[in-house]
Design a protein around this nucleic acid. Structure first.
Length: 275
DNA sequence: AGAACTGTCCACTTTACATCA
DNA sequence: AATGATGTAAAGTGGACAGTT
């Protein structure tokens, strides 16, 4: 892994430009999920690889390779004991990296390419890998099938892509994060629209209240009384007269009084409760 | 049973690089 | 052509959790 520059003549720059488009579709990782994780956001994203922007540094001999390992960690191959004083997480990573590094050294030997001494020293610290078009395409394809990988799948994919398993794992993690972010943005837009709709509806209802109040002021007393005493249950649609001292059986506008019954045992949970 | 270890995930952050004004 | 701002994606970090020893 790394910049394989045993000679400038052995490298070639391959430039690609383009845009990407995404399509969301539901998915669920086959792995276990802890309760606080939110798999509902996990969606597939179909990408048009032809349109995906990227810059690739490749060997003129054929197989494109990643540019350089990420940071000093990768250059500390086979030095597990050197980090034993770190936190357990760090030690864990170091172990993983070290074993992967060994694998990568093999890969690099197979490619007959390696870092120059200067690059290997890491003048600027870590360099950043840019995945090739083929690598991205394969990873995307794999992500479409399952947004999480089990160890075997990860190993196989890493071998296939000539990457470290850790890199495959990181790619999937970042990919899930991007998908989730995108979904969050979509949800946000949806909520905004919903909010606008409700605001409009609220405005309309407020206006209606104002109109009804104005109407009430202009009506004669008996009309007001009718409006005030007649109510309709929204669930059973039965119009009934509210018990009112002014409303008696002789009033021509009062409705036949009818004992109202609630539709369920809990009057508060029923619209009829307001009747 | 429970402590230690390991592997994986996620959220957040850092960093290298590309692009654009 | 140089440069600073900005966006993107690879990678680092740390905590949580589940499974295994």
């Amino acid at each position: 892994m790394g910049i394989h520059d045993d000679g400038a003549c052995k490298t070639a720059l391959v430039l690609r430009l383009g845009l990407s488009s995404t399509v969301e579709s539901p998915s669920k990782p086959d792995n276990k999920q802890t309760p606080n994780r939110n798999p509902s956001f996990l969606k597939f994203e179909a990408t048009s690889f032809d349109d995906e922007p990227s810059l690739t540094l490749g060997l003129s001999g054929g197989g494109e390779v990643d540019v350089k390992p990420a940071g000093d960690l990768y250059r500390q191959a086979s030095t597990v004991s050197a980090v034993s004083s770190f936190s357990s997480g760090k030690v864990k990573r170091e172990r993983e990296v070290s074993s992967e590094e060994l694998m990568e050294v093999e890969n690099n030997n197979n490619n007959s390419s390696r870092l120059s001494d200067e690059d290997e020293e890491g003048v600027n610290g870590r360099k950043k890998l840019r995945l090739s078009k083929q690598q991205s395409a394969l990873l995307e394809e794999s992500f479409k099938q399952h947004s999480t990988l089990n160890p075997k799948q990860k190993q196989a994919l890493a071998r296939q892509l000539n990457l470290k398993p850790r890199q495959v794992e990181v790619w999937f993690q970042n990919r899930r994060a991007r998908t989730k972010l995108k979904q969050t943005e979509v949800d946000c837009e949806l909520l905004k629209k919903c909010c606008e709709t409700l605001t409009d509806e609220n405005r309309r209802l407020q206006k209606e209240i104002q109109e009804l109040k104005a109407l009430k002021l202009t009506q004669p007393f008996y009309m007001q009384m009718q409006a005030a005493t007649l109510t309709m249950c929204p669930s059973c649609e039965i119009t009934t007269a509210v018990a009112d001292a002014n409303a008696n059986s002789n009033t021509p506008f009062s409705m036949a009084s009818k004992p109202h019954h609630f539709h369920n045992s809990n009057p508060l949970s029923s619209p009829s409760a307001a009747c």
